[in-house]
Amino acid sequence: MSTIALSINNKAIGPIETSDDIMMIEFLHEHLNMTGTKFGCGVGVCHACTVIVDNEDGTSESVRTCINGVSRFNGKKIRTIEGHAKENEFGEIIKLSPVQETFIENFSFQCGWCTSGFVNETTVLVERLKLMPIHVSEIETVIDKALGDHICRCTGYVKYYQAVKELILATEGLTRS
């Protein structure tokens, strides 16, 4: 057994006792009943289960929760799909994040199972570009590289990619010409 404590979406979680062989996604689902992070393949290929780990140096990285044990996240700060939108005092969602907004307005997803992975990966990308803007001509290549590992079975990727491109172009400071 291990004792795990971490921050999820700015809320302190734990300490909680878990078995040592529990993967992070299993911890989210079975211990915390947070099921917005989706199980797709269980072997790290499809990237549906991606969450964000916020490092102490201010950078963030996307990490797959199906192949990483819960101990990897002990003491870390993470963000999951449940943490992006703003809620009112009744716990109702009132405002989506810009990434979430661009995805729904572009009809980017269909079944929605891969969506949380795409939202998290794109959020990491956008935050990175804020620190390190890219030349506008690189935009498609940068998106290809950032999202290229994520599998979507319904949409053909087009409306995800277009949405991200639209968002990057529309957000000040992400690109230079």
Partner: peptide, 12 residues
Amino acid sequence: GYALYTGFCAGC
């Protein structure tokens, strides 16, 4: 090393 192994390696 145990926690490192369970955290980073055991999944695969």
